[in-house]
Design a protein around this nucleic acid. Sequence first.
RNA 1: GUGGAUGUAGCGCAAUUGGUUAGCGCACCAGGUUGUGGCCCUGGUGGUUGGGGGUUCAAGUCCCCUCAUUCACCCCA
Length: 419
Amino acid sequence: MPVIKGTKDIFSREMELFDHLYGMVDRAFYLSGYEKIEAPVMEYTELFSRSIGDFTDIVQKEMFTFLDRKGRSITLRPEGTAGVIRAYIDNNFSFNPGITKLYYYGPMFRAENPQKGRLREFHQFGCEAIGSLNPLLDVEVIKINMDLLDELGLKNISLEINSVGCRTCRKDYTDKLRIFLNENKAHLCENCVTRAEKNPMRVFDCKNEACQKVFENALFLTDHLCPECLEHFNKVKYYLDLNKIPYQINKRLVRGFDYYTKTVFEIKSGVLGSQNAVLGGGRYDYLIELLGGKPAPAVGAAAGMERILMAMTEQNIQMEGMKKKSVFIGTAGKIDEELVIRLFALLHKNNIRTFYSYNEKSLKAQFKEADKIGCDLMVILGEEELKNNKVVLRDLKKGEQKEIALDQLMDRPLDILPE
RNA sequence: GUGGAUGUAGCGCAAUUGGUUAGCGCACCAGGUUGUGGCCCUGGUGGUUGGGGGUUCAAGUCCCCUCAUUCACCCCA
């Protein structure tokens, strides 16, 4: 049986890297006062169509949607924010003291055609800070994530920011933009003509050269923000400067979710090729009320874990897993396997990683196996030694060995086994 | 959804213009005298050449279909 297109098994070295990354994420957000939340992987489809937007690519053609047995439409989450906000509303987090800070990680699903850095099931971590309009929070979200990427050793990353305004300025702006696009209709590609009607701001994403040429003369929302949004944007820039976080303003940066307002940002890696966005996010001040909650402004961000790991691999960044001492239990001659079971359980109980060759093998073969696994120590239960209540303890790294008393090993294993 | 490239043992590769029993390296298993690893040596396991159909005396090699992988477009993490 093959795996489903765009999905994969994670194991071995890659699993270690993921675990390491999870640990770093936990640490970073915990220290910044965030609480971890795990929302379900599936939700009613309406949650996503309402939050992300009916005319976005994601909702239109990239969701894994199916009917349950009662005919309700269910969707595998394509992103994390909607679910977290649903949970925020359902569980009345708005009654929590102060603002609510949440983070999460887990699998996301998008039915796109896979390519480098793009899976159908991929993993994101993300955070949401709900309950304040303070631009300080926008910058905090950016900073935590930037620092985390930095801590992971990622180089060659760049931050792009923009503002997509609020209800009032966006309305005024899109009206103007629509008129502009209509005037230049003849020079635009098909795609952009349809976008001009449904979601004008998305035209800026077009890669078509002819279109881009037209847009050179276009007006950007960034230049037509209402006083409130402009002030917010200026403060964000100011706080970024204060934090010495380098950034570029990308007036064409429009993200793929309709719920964003004011600040949007994206972090790109220079070593990833085509799928170079590692992290993205922004402010979404209307989402909570849109989903039926008590209105509250919020900011969030999400990062692609596979892409981060890929960038790290690309840059040869090593991550040291915390390797515990491991012991291989070897046997020689005829011995009672009951002793193996006892010793195995004992070592395990003392937090020592333990191996045993369950197939009958020559002692030599057992050594080879221990060596390949990379065990540090070998305890050899030998028929001869056991007659005198002794076992052999061999240090596989140093190549030295000695006999020790079995009782001593069983009573105080940690004293006998170094570290 | 669109376009290009590629599919041969677990992994990486080879197989002259279609021509014997499809090879090699790594990995795996077993040995190299009685109970001691890493190096080395010897031997062994493992493939319906992605799947299906066709052309041919003969197909891993040619044709068609299909599936998958991959890169790119699109979009995004």
